[in-house]
Design a protein around this nucleic acid. Sequence first.
DNA 1: CGCCGCAAATTTGTATACAATGATGCATGC
DNA 2: GCATGCATCATTGTATACAAATTTGCGGCG
Lengths: 244, 244
Amino acid sequence: MTLLARSRTDTPARPAPAGKPTRRRPGPTRAEALATELAEAITEGRMPPGTALEEERLAAAHGVSRTPVREALRLLAATGLVEQRPRRGAVVARPEPGRLAEMFQAMAELEAICASLCAQAMSRADKARLASRHATMGKMVEDGWLDAYKDANVAFHEALYAGSGNSYLAEMADATRRRLAPFRAAQLGGQDRLAASHGEHGAIVAAILAGDGVAAAAAVRRHLAETEGSWGVLAGQQPPLRVG
Amino acid sequence: MTLLARSRTDTPARPAPAGKPTRRRPGPTRAEALATELAEAITEGRMPPGTALEEERLAAAHGVSRTPVREALRLLAATGLVEQRPRRGAVVARPEPGRLAEMFQAMAELEAICASLCAQAMSRADKARLASRHATMGKMVEDGWLDAYKDANVAFHEALYAGSGNSYLAEMADATRRRLAPFRAAQLGGQDRLAASHGEHGAIVAAILAGDGVAAAAAVRRHLAETEGSWGVLAGQQPPLRVG
DNA sequence: CGCCGCAAATTTGTATACAATGATGCATGC
DNA sequence: GCATGCATCATTGTATACAAATTTGCGGCG
C-alpha cells in the first residue's frame, strides 16, 4: 500500500476522530492511532506473542516514518502488550507461564472486587440492565450462537468493571483482560463449556441483584477458575511460537 | 548544566546500569533514564501536579534532544504520572478529586488482596522478616524518627506487595502508590498519627502471622481508611496549582 | 471599554540523517 | 571438520530539520 511517494504532509487531513476513540478527544496523532491499531491486532491474535516488531517494516506498512512507530511501541510497552529489549528490538509480549498464572489470578481478584462493588453500588436500573444482558446471552447459548456469545461475554465482563463505579479499577481490569486476550484465542470452544459459562454468570448476576457482595466475589472467582481450566493448556504450549 | 556543546556521542560511555535499575538490564537508553528521573521528581513532589512539561526545556535541561524526551513522556503518560493532550503539551497528571478517591479505594483493595495472599503464601521466614521490620518501625515511633519512619512505611507496604507472591499484582499496587504519592506530600504529620499508623500495621502483621487472610484484608482496609482521612484535605485543594 | 478577528510566535508532530551497537556470515587457524 | 575471530550488515538510538497547529498578542471595531 501507499507505493506512491506521498509528500510529507499528504495526510487525509485527519478526517475525524471517529475510527477508534482512544480517549484522546482532540486529535489522534499517528502514534496513538498506530498504537490502538497494533493493540487490536495483538489482542485479536493476528500478531501472536513472540512476533518481532521491526520499526522500519511497521513504518513502511503503515505509510509513516519510524518516529511515530517508536512512540507507539513505547506506549504499548508501558501497557505491557509488547516487550522492548534496548538495542534488540521489540516483540509482542510473551510472558512466562508463571507470570501468566499470576496475571490470571490478579484478574480474578480484580473482577471479584468489581463484582462486590457492583452489588453495593449499582443502581436499580443498572442491575436491571445487567440482568437483561444476561438473559440475552442465554438465548445465544440456546441457539448455539458462538460468535455472538464471545462478544457478549467480553461486554458482560466489562459491564461488571464499569458497574463497580470505580473507573480506575475498571481500567486496570480491562488492561489485564486485554493483556491476557492473546492467550485465549480458542477459548469457549465446546458447547458444554458455553452453557457452563452462562450458568456461572447467572450466579454472579443473582448475587449482585441480591446486593450480596461477598457472594458475588465468590461467584466470580469460581467462574474464572473454571475458565482458566479451559485454557491452561494454551499457557503451557509456549515454545513453538516465533512467528514472522 | 552542560553548557559546552557536547559532540553528539559524548555520552559517559554508559558507565554502568547501576543508577536506577529500571528492570531493562542491558542498557538504559536516554529515554528510559529520563523517564525514571522525571518519575522520581514527580513522586517526590519536586514537580507538583499541573506542572507543564515542555519538551525543549526538558531536553535542554538534560542535555539531550527532543526525541528521547518525547519517548520518556510517552512512557510516563502510559504509567499515568503525566497527562498528554495531543498538540497541547504534557503536564504532570492532576486527577480530579473524584478520580483520586477512586484511586485510593482501588489501592486499598489491591493492598487488601496482597495482605490476604501474604497470610496464605508467605513462608515462615518471610513472616518473621515482616514482623522484625514492624518491630524496627516501632522503635522509630518511640524515638520520633519521622523521616526514617516515612521511608520504612513505604518499604513496609511494598513488602506486603512482594509477599503476595504475585508480581503482577505487586506491580499494580506499586504503580498506584506511586501515582498517589504526589498527593501525600505532608502525610504522617502528627506524632499521634504516627503511633496510630504503627498500631494499625500491628493488626495487619498479626493477622498475616496467624494466617488469617480475611482479617488481614480487613485490617488493611481499616488502615488505609484512616490514612485517607489524614489527607482527604489535600485532595480537595486542587485549584491553586499551576506551577511553572 | 470590551470583544472579535487576525497575524506572529511558540510548541508539538513527523520526517529524515547520522552514529553505534548487536547480529550474521565468512574466512582462517587449529 | 569444527571452533574462533573478524568484517559486513542490519537495526536501533539520537539528533536535527521542517510543517502544522495551537496559543498569544495586537489592532480594529462595536
